[in-house]
Design a protein around this nucleic acid. Structure first.
Length: 121
DNA sequence: GGTCTGACCGGCG
DNA sequence: ACGCCGGCCAGAC
């Protein structure tokens, strides 16, 4: 097999498993709760690379089984709303689950926050 | 190769 | 919890 083809395969497998790990965690977020990119990153052991979790969400865009709207940034801001069908999709889905939002900010954030490192084993 | 850009985060003021 | 900064790392030029 050609060298470049092998590298491509490794990269695909790497990103595949990383995406899958992220998706599995996101799928476990209960309705009406939210978590943050950094919390997922810590849970997966990727530490400070929370950006990669956000990057993984871009790929999750196609997968409707992944409730990406339940992932916000560390202060409860809906930073990913522009990546949904419309800029209001994310907020509407959350409000339908009972999450209060004002000015793109999740209200009672500490109560609604779901930390995988604490809730999962 | 360098350089820039993010759905980010922790620390500091 | 506002604002800035340095760190993070994959992808696009």
């Amino acid at each position: 097999m050609a060298r470049s083809a092998r590298i491509e395969k490794v990269k695909q497998q790497k990103s595949y498993s990383f995406f899958q790990e992220v998706y599995e965690v996101v799928k476990l977020i209960p309705q009406g709760r939210v978590t943050s990119y950094g919390a997922i990153a810590r849970y997966l052991g990727t530490g400070m690379s929370a950006r990669m979790v956000g990057w993984a969400m871009n790929a999750a865009h196609s997968d409707h089984r992944v409730p990406a709207h339940r992932v916000v940034n560390r202060v409860g801001l809906l930073t990913g709303k522009h990546h949904f069908a419309t800029p209001r999709t994310m907020q509407e889905r959350l409000e339908k689950e009972g999450v209060q939002i004002k000015k793109d900010l999740v209200q009672k954030f500490t109560d609604v926050f779901w930390d995988p490192t604490k809730e999962l084993l």
